[in-house]
Amino acid sequence: MTRLRYEGKDAKTGEDRWTLHFVELEANILASLPEQLEALLTHPESNQRVVDRLFPASYEDPEEEALNRKLLGDSLMAERKEMITAVNEQLEGATKTDDGTELHLDRASVDLWLRFMNDVRLVIATDLGIRENIGDEDVVDPANPDAPKYALLEYLGGVEAILVEAVSRAG
């Protein structure tokens, strides 16, 4: 089970620091996600509807939006790929423990993981066609072929909630 431990402030920088602990199964799943997201972004035509959710329109007017996209160029896609690179660097810097993996986080890396996990959740939910708010009462039948996707959606949401609470509490 994923646990977050507050490590206090860094002696040099004064920054809040946390350790996020994953058991091996969770760590393995987590480690597979950057590659999957990158593959989707590299080949958006493989699931354009899902990719579009990550890059929604800024303007309702199609002409304004076309001009906006032209001005932005590929900067939004580049930013997403930089995020994935940073997540991979975080994973490379993780510590192996007897029962899993520990990520060492400061406020910036908490923000990075929140954005990344949220992107993965948006991808899964869009792929599943989720249009209504998901509540605790929405138990998915384990026999449902999409049950693992729902489980990952819920799991990442739980980790997100832990991280948000931690940074909020730290002030």
Partner: peptide
């Protein structure tokens, strides 16, 4: 329907 309420506040 996906973004957590606490995440949106954040």
């Amino acid at each position: 329907p996906v973004n957590l309420m606490s995440y949106v506040v954040y």
